[in-house]
Design a protein around this nucleic acid. Structure first.
Length: 811
RNA sequence: GCCGAGAUGGCGGAAUCGGUAGACGCGCCGGACUCAAAAUCCGGUGGGGUAGCCCCCCGUGUGGGUUCGAGUCCCACUCUCGGUACCA
């Protein structure tokens, strides 16, 4: 055996073994306890970054740990392969997006293999494979057929130079991020998924995830869905048939309404503006401005007059820049006395402020200083005077309902999900537009609608691709030219991994076997969009009978960012550390060990070159120690009773380590402390100088347990050392070590002695010492005596196996 | 503003049932080996007092509280990080 640790050779040997024995293939075994461990799949940018390495190291360590617990583990890997960078690369380097993407996948797959992650590569998928997106198209058509997908015109960011829709993130200071052209708001017909139909479930089912997902992720999802309960109230408008509907969470303030405010994009405003130049100019101006809090409240009167639903009082109708078309109905009843924005607007345009709620404690609200926004007691509200806000609100809604002018409603911040993208490198929308029949889905038999991967994205789609016969009437028709948002692909990949090779169905019984994902691991940056969409898709698939259960990810671990010099590692910051040279220099095991040891998974991880060195040193020490032991030849096993006290102590330390490591990994995934415990144990072993048969037996017991405990973190070194030491089988298939209760027993133990809560001495007592014995020993201790001399012990606290606390008082 | 998480040595972090704060690693200091260096090994390392570590005092963001005993529980603050926001 090589007494010097050469990571490259070690890692090659271990990986060759795993490959040859298909160790990570995950067949379905009915009856076995399954564990589906999934790390968020990467976008194939071409190279792994340190964030990937951390993410996948954590996932792999958990998967390997569960396997040693006896679980049937599935851990797949794939590629989130559609997206803009491929199109940009195509434009910049004259390559095809598909070729570029696939070559990146090859490079990154090689990097993942070098790191020794235990993936079932037979299930690998890329979302740009027609076999994958075919089922996405199939499923979209099912959604369309049941009304869950629909097409409507929507305002979008339109880049006139690149002739495409841009995501909000791609608009910088009102200009397209690539073209630099001024972005226009344009109405374009787009596909939407009716996620708002599931808002209530998406919110309610978060309860199932309580304690299993990080609390901040649950809260972020709740905020994003943004449920609010309130009232829809309709105000008649003079000279119009249609009333104006508003949404308010404060119906109790209805009597304080002094004007109405509409979003500049409100249809009513748009209509009037077409005949009113001044108003039209105002709208144009206000639409141009980027939305931001704190900007001045600007408005313009529309000339319309609305009627208060209870009093009939005339209320001027304004358009105002602080009213959002995207929330509620794009119109608000303005109550300047009790809403700060309404108040500021009223001050700016000299509109009346009428207080109708007074502070509940009888204090005066200063209407000149600002709005009084809290709940309180009603005033100036006729029959509602004296009621509390909640009671009054309910009474007012009841009265409105009686008159047919309003009712209680629930509103969400969440909007339907616009999934159309005017991009080439994405999943084609499987729809045909027929002049006679309208929108007609592509028949299932004709799926997938394939992208033309040979066509450079800068070139226009050829007529041959665009033209299609209408599946319904057979007439000339055109294909939909949009592709899906790439978030659609990543919303169901976890299910397809289970049925990766199913040719006649999107999913099969294997998906029901493996789902839900038992442990999902990924970055917090996906806390809202990806995780919300994937939860939504799971419910859609459930309602189509494809999967069972309400949620796709039973447990979620969000790993912290990798920092260097205090800020996130990134190319743009210039502080990125490339994993590859590090693996070359130290080996995959050292990199993995550092990732797990430097901090707990959820925390940020501060990069440290010397920290990596420290991990490398530990592995070298472990290696050398194991080699030295192996060179000592075989050992005979010796009955436990014959152990000397130092041997017994080492054995106790071993089993304490086992207990601790199992505890912290199983309960909290804090590999850092499990590794630290093993480092301590190695330090003990290095001090343990005992070449007797019993001593060597004991060392062997320690090594056996240590290699198993370290295997999830440093699988290659553990694999080779396990074999070199002549243990049975491969360490990968071994059970996790179990702590031996008998070994944990000790005859004497160290007890702290406190006087008035301060530690003053340490005692060595028999483990079975009684309270009286402990008290006596404590009082007789010289150090303790100094602190109790001349005082009265009024009380003694006895915590068995831990401490004695003498409570003393002067005199 | 609102929501969430957090604050422990020079640094990353331990101590998650209220019971010896600072495990483990890094860094630093001293020593061994060496012609020398690297590597490796051994010892020390919260601050202060002090005849060296025999001991004593202080110490987990700040100020109070509960308790025999608080990093841990309660109240009030400060700061940091993350998310989100004219959401009616």
């Amino acid at each position: 055996m090589q007494s010097e640790y050469v990571p490259a050779a070690v890692e090659q040997e271990a990986q060759a073994y795993w490959d040859a024995h298909r160790c990570f293939a995950a067949p379905e075994k009915p009856g076995a306890r399954k564990f589906y461990c999934l790390s968020m799949f990467p976008y194939p940018s071409g190279r792994l970054h340190m964030g990937h390495v951390r993410n996948y190291t954590i996932g792999d360590a958990i998967a390997r740990y569960r396997r040693m617990q006896g679980d049937q583990v599935l851990q797949p890997m794939g590629w989130d392969a559609f997206g803009l960078p491929a199109e940009n690369a195509a434009l910049e380097r004259r390559v095809l997006p598909g070729a570029w993407t696939r070559s990146n996948i090859r490079a990154m797959r090689e990097q993942l293999r070098k790191l020794g992650f235990g993936y079932d590569w037979e299930r690998e998928l890329a979302t740009c494979d027609p076999d994958y997106y075919r089922w996405e198209q199939w499923f979209f058509i099912r959604l369309y057929e049941k009304g869950a997908a629909y097409r409507k015109k929507a305002l979008v960011n339109w880049d006139p130079a690149d002739r495409t829709v841009l995501a909000n993130e791609q608009v910088i200071d009102g200009r397209g991020w690539r073209s630099g052209a001024l972005v226009e708001q344009r109405e374009v017909a787009q596909w939407f998924l009716r996620i708002t139909d599931y808002a209530e479930q998406l919110l309610g089912d978060l309860e199932q995830l309580e304690g299993k997902w990080p609390p901040q992720v649950l809260q972020m999802q709740r905020n994003w869905i943004g449920r609010s309960r309130g009232a829809a109230i309709r105000f008649a408008v003079d000279g119009r048939d249609e009333p104006l509907e508003v949404f308010t969470t404060r119906p109790d303030t209805l009597m304080g309404t002094t004007y109405m405010a509409l979003a500049p994009g409100h249809p009513l405003v748009q209509e009037i503006a077409s005949k009113n130049n001044e108003l039209n100019d105002f709208i144009k101006q206000s639409l141009k401005q980027a939305e931001s809090e704190g900007r001045d409240k600007l408005g313009h009167p529309t000339g319309l007059v609305a009627r208060h639903p209870l009093t009939g009082e005339p209320l001027p109708v304004w358009t105002a820049n602080f009213v959002l078309m995207e929330y509620g109905s794009g119109a608000v009843m303005s109550v300047p006395a009790h809403d700060q924005r309404d108040w500021e607007f009223a001050k700016a345009y000299d509109l009346p402020i009428r207080q109708v709620v007074a502070p509940g404690d009888g204090a005066e609200a200063d209407m000149e200083a600002g709005a009084f926004v809290e709940y309180g007691t009603l005033v100036n509200s006729g029959e509602y005077d004296g009621m509390g806000s909640e009671e009054a609100g309910a009474a007012i809604v009841e009265e409105l309902a009686k008159r047919g002018q309003g009712e209680e409603v629930v509103r969400y911040r969440l909007h339907d999900w616009g999934v159309s993208r005017q991009r080439r490198w994405g999943c084609p929308v499987p729809m045909i537009h027929c002049p006679a029949c309208g929108i007609v889905p592509v028949p299932d038999a004709d799926l997938p609608v394939r992208l033309d991967e040979e066509l450079p994205p800068a070139e226009a789609l050829p007529e041959a691709w665009l033209n299609a016969a209408c599946p319904r009437c057979g007439g000339a028709a055109r294909r939909d030219t949009d592709t899906f948002d790439t978030f659609v692909e990543s919303s169901w990949y976890q299910a397809r991994f289970c049925s990766h090779d199913s040719e006649d169905a999107m999913l099969d019984e294997r998906a029901r076997h493996w789902l839900p994902v038992d442990q999902y691991i990924g970055g917090i940056e996906h806390a809202i969009l990806h995780l919300l969409y994937a939860r939504y898709f799971h419910k859609l698939m459930r309602d189509e009978g494809l999967v069972e259960g309400d949620e796709p990810f039973a447990r979620l671990l969000t790993q912290g960012m990798v920092l260097k010099d205090g800020s996130k590692m990134s190319k743009s910051m210039g502080n990125a550390v490339d994993p590859e040279p590090l693996i070359e220099r130290y080996g995959a095991d050292t990199v993995r060990l550092f990732m797990l040891f430097a901090s707990p998974p959820e925390h940020t991880l501060e990069w440290s070159d010397s920290g990596v060195e420290g991990c490398a040193r530990f592995l070298k020490r472990l290696w050398r120690f194991a080699c030295d032991h192996a060179q000592g030849g075989d050992v005979a096993s010796v009955p436990e009773a014959e152990l000397t006290p130092p041997q017994q102590e080492l054995r106790r330390r071993l089993h304490e380590t086992i207990r601790k490591a199992g505890n912290v990994i199983g309960r909290r995934h804090t590999f850092n402390t499990a590794i630290a415990a093993n480092m301590e144990l190695l330090n003990e072993l290095l001090r343990f100088d005992d070449a007797s048969a019993a001593g060597r037996t004991l060392v062997r017991e320690c090594l056996s347990a240590m290699l198993r405990m370290l295997a999830p973190a440093v699988p290659h070194a553990a694999h080779v050392l396990w074999r070199e030491l002549g243990f049975d089988g491969a360490v990968l298939g071994q059970p996790w070590p179990e702590a031996d209760e008998a070994a944990l027993q000790q005859s004497v133990e160290r007890i702290a002695v406190q006087v008035n809560g301060k530690v003053r001495a340490e005692l060595e007592l028999p483990t079975d010492a009684s309270e009286d014995e402990a008290g006596q020993a404590a009082r007789n201790d010289a150090k303790v005596l100094r602190h109790i001399a001349g005082k009265t012990v009024v009380r003694m606290i006895w915590v068995p196996h831990k401490l004695v606390n003498l409570v003393v008082r002067d005199g």
